[in-house]
Design a protein around this nucleic acid. Structure first.
Lengths: 240, 240
DNA sequence: CGCACGGTTGAAGCGGCTCAATCTGGGTGG
DNA sequence: CCACCCAGATTGAGCCGCTTCAACCGTGCG
């Protein structure tokens, strides 16, 4: 019955079996989508809500000059777009990064869940708050952190989120991001991302290779990042 | 009966007189606070919800190295902190920028409003969505825009938000921000903010002087900014 | 095989930072 | 009413982190 979605939400509110059942049922309509497939395109009118069950996706916006800024990474259990529930048209796109399993839940059914189940409402609300905290943390990174710090911080965030849904070991997790994707997320060029990753590797801090992250020195890493994981969830432990 | 708060929320959902009455009543506990006064300090446990009725405030976070990153500007009618409703401790601070009138609403009363009035719930939800869109727009700015573009974009955002609550004329509005505050918001140094403002002034695009913004060439300004105001509200008009 | 895409490395340029000095205006005490 | 003060605004000079441009490598895949 439980899937990545219900697991994540259980972390936010004490869902009982009936709640979990309803949520799992809402996710019954599952699609397999390949990497690089768009779930939502800028300008679409938002209809179903997408929930990631397996695989990674990201939301991004294209600028007039062709540049791309990634706004969020969606991991298993994450909503892709509750936030745009009421808007007429979406102002950004969402694309899968890996092959993925995605559930699509009709808006109407979401409404029903929210109406009927206060605990589910609360879990949705929390989920939203956490997403918003992540956005704020990104702003801090882009505004005031150097390239090294930014990348270290992003790796901390993603590692902790992966660990939080049981997809990380003590010192590593999957991290299926190309250097181009990382660059578009942290606001740097791929070339510079490459140099930063090299220096982190040579400095024996962390290693990102063939789609997976290995944290060699967790203390150093979170020092460099200035990482305080609390924003991801009240009861999260620190890296290391 | 109506105040800046009920006016802003009316823009998001069709509040009836009873709704407006309840909201206005919730805001009955008003305090006058001077500029530079902290409404919330990092580490506080969040109790009342603050609503700006007059004046400006901003939320920010201090980094280990002493740097400051501003995360949001709060204008009349804005919530300061619904988002942190459920968290144990706040991870950022909120300080007034000008003298201000601030209503504090007990959390319990907020809950009552949300339970009893679906339209109010919807308005809160919308308000939250708009806030989140603003955060995303900031990420785009910090990640992919130059200093000129960033500052132009911020000015567009703030002008439109001011106009939206009836506090702007065709070509100007109050903008009580020092260059230091702007620098902390857009992730630049005050020195460079100064140079950018100078170039925008000399280029006859806009002028920021003694706490007020004058838009000289709205078309150029929004071109420079790459500004698309839709994210602030479905039915917003463009600058100019 | 060969193409395409991502990773890697080097060299040169530039946007924004740092450091530092001067100017300005509003507030304050005498 | 003036002298002073102080925070913010302004300007200049030099520096540095990141970008740009360009080449080359490695590898998975049609």
């Amino acid at each position: 019955m439980a899937n990545a979605f219900t697991k994540r939400l259980s972390g936010y509110a004490p869902l009982n079996d009936a709640d979990v059942g309803l949520l799992a049922d809402a996710c019954r309509n599952v699609r397999d989508v390949p990497a690089g497939h768009h779930l939502i395109m800028e300008g679409d009118s938002p209809d179903p809500v997408f929930v990631m069950l397996e695989g990674w996706a990201c939301g991004y916006k294209i600028l007039p000059d062709g540049g791309r800024q990634i706004l969020a990474f969606m991991l298993p259990g994450d909503f892709c777009d509750i936030h745009i529930a009421v808007l007429k048209a979406v102002d950004h796109s969402i694309v899968t990064i890996t092959n993925a399993k995605v559930a699509s839940v009709p808006r109407a059914q979401m409404e029903v869940l929210v109406q009927a189940r206060p605990t589910i409402t609360r879990a949705f609300w929390w989920s939203q708050l956490v997403d918003q905290s992540v956005l704020r943390a990104w702003i801090v990174s882009m505004g005031r952190r150097t390239a090294n710090e930014r990348i270290a911080h992003l790796m901390c965030e993603l590692y902790i989120r992966m660990r939080n849904i049981g997809l990380a070991t003590d010192d590593q997790c999957e991290m299926p991001l190309t250097q181009i994707v990382i660059a578009d997320a942290v606001g740097l060029t791929p070339v510079h991302v490459n140099r930063v990753l090299k220096s982190l590797r040579l400095g024996k801090v962390m290693e990102l290779r063939s789609g997976s992250l290995t944290i060699i020195d967790p203390v150093r890493l979170s020092e460099i990042a200035g990482f305080d994981g609390n924003y991801l969830h009240g009861r999260l432990k620190q890296v290391g």
